[in-house]
Design a protein around this nucleic acid. Structure first.
Lengths: 138, 138
DNA sequence: TCACTAAATGCGAAAGATTCTCATTCTTCT
DNA sequence: AGAAGAATGAGAATCTTTCGCATTTAGTGA
């Protein structure tokens, strides 16, 4: 009964919100744009407006249920929160996305923010490259 | 005579390109959106279309003269290439941008790309926070 | 369980950023 | 100076995301 989860976060357990959440939880693709979520739900027979998808994803982000990334190329992609912080490395050829965690980088970032006098609130690290399978193809 | 610089890069030395380049080189503000460049040129009495600003900045990026960043919030910002690679830390309150270089992070990134089987082509690291002067205000 | 109130949704319009089209104007080379 | 091809400007078009508003729905209390 996920409706309880939403209520705990101060969000009404509406049908669109439940469907989007369970879709994100069960999708094999982890990183999706609002448009992709919208289309996937349409194909699944769910009738949810695109504006609602945007609104709900934004609310989920504020509630900490999903995180939003700005990969190169413009539009936002969303990812369900797994709890553990991680950064991303992505293939510029095929769009593949991998995740990684590096505590050395994390602590260095904190140190830099500190040295520069900033109270760090967030950070984004994207590594771009060509993945192994795309290297073989070329 | 900068026109030679452009020609070396395979770009015709047109008036709009020269003006945009020299504007970027002399501007006190290092990070600007296409729109901001456009407006600044207008105010300086130069009559250059917005579409041209976009085109020229994209060409300059391809030629390595400027780099493009995707800070949080959507639109692209451009910065003239200084030669030395650096990353950015920015204030979420006032928009201030500072630069930094950290070789430890750089080498860690190369290591991660390597471990994941990627041929790294690029990377972007943005640290977000509240700068010292904004901290005092609040 | 039923009705009420506030909040959420859907749809189309609107806004913001960036790209495209195409006629006109330059650059470069001769 | 003249020709050929590339670049520019202005506005239309596109894409992503947000807004406005009438309609529907969830949560609550009687």
């Amino acid at each position: 009964m996920e409706s309880e989860d939403l209520k705990k976060l101060g969000l009404k357990a509406t049908a669109p919100r439940m469907k989007i959440l369970s879709f994100l939880e069960t999708s094999k693709v982890r990183h999706m744009s609002a448009e992709e979520v919208y289309k996937a739900l349409l194909e699944a027979g769910e009738d949810i407006g695109l504006a609602t998808v945007y609104r709900v994803l934004t609310q989920f982000e504020a509630a900490g249920l999903v995180s939003r990334h700005h990969f190169e190329g413009g539009n936002s992609v969303f990812e369900i929160e797994s709890g553990k912080h991680h950064d991303h490395i992505l293939c510029v050829k095929c769009g593949r996305v991998d995740e990684f965690v590096d505590e050395t980088i994390e602590s260095r970032q904190r140190k830099i923010a500190d040295e520069k006098g900033y109270a760090m609130t967030d950070h984004a690290l994207y590594i771009y490259g060509i993945c192994s399978s795309c290297q073989k193809k070329s």
